[in-house]
Amino acid sequence: MSSDTKTAKDVALTLCLHCHKLNPVSWSVCSRCGGSIHLRKPKSVQVTLAWLITAIVFYIPANIFPVMTTYAFGRETASSIIGGIFELWEQKSFVIAAIIFVASIIIPILKILLLLWLCLSLKLNLTETLKLRTSLYRLTLWIGRWSMIDVFVVAILVALLQLGGLLSIQPTIGSLAFACVVIATMLAAESFDPRLIWDSLER
């Protein structure tokens, strides 16, 4: 980096994350919007790791337990997330199967691994791949919410398919666990402060 690149921290300014105003470092409340400000998000890595561990813990029941039970013509079938994807694949709904596979299997795992790597790279004081890591962080921010697709699909099926004794669908504990995974990973991404990645240049 050239010597003329200065960060807000170098000139003793804190960026307000609510309204993007620069305030003197010593202030704890933003002069424009009244929100609380910090030079860096407080305990960023610890809080991120805590939410990630929560997400991993919920991820196990989310995949073991079924997300819904179908009662059709007197028969009872429980389906898990992966089972549902296979079912769609067999019905030749390839696009939908792919969307749900990416949203509920790939995205949560990718997001957890990426955030773990970002936290680890801060602990190791890596000074390379700064731009790449910031871009990956933005990716985790953006993709997180799309994992909710499967929970919403269950919600729609449960609401609609209540056809007397003929066909009915009940939600089961797996979908709650999965919703918790999504929320925990979103909170993890939210608590991470990407400015810490660039702070490694100072040392």
Binding site: S93, I100, M148, I149, D150, V153, A155, I156, L160
Partner: peptide, 19 residues
């Protein structure tokens, strides 16, 4: 996200019932 979920469930539903 809900919009995409809705389109996905419509596909799933058409294989089960008349919608």
């Amino acid at each position: 996200v809900y919009l995409v979920a809705m389109l996905a469930s419509i596909t799933k539903l058409t294989s089960m019932v008349t919608i």
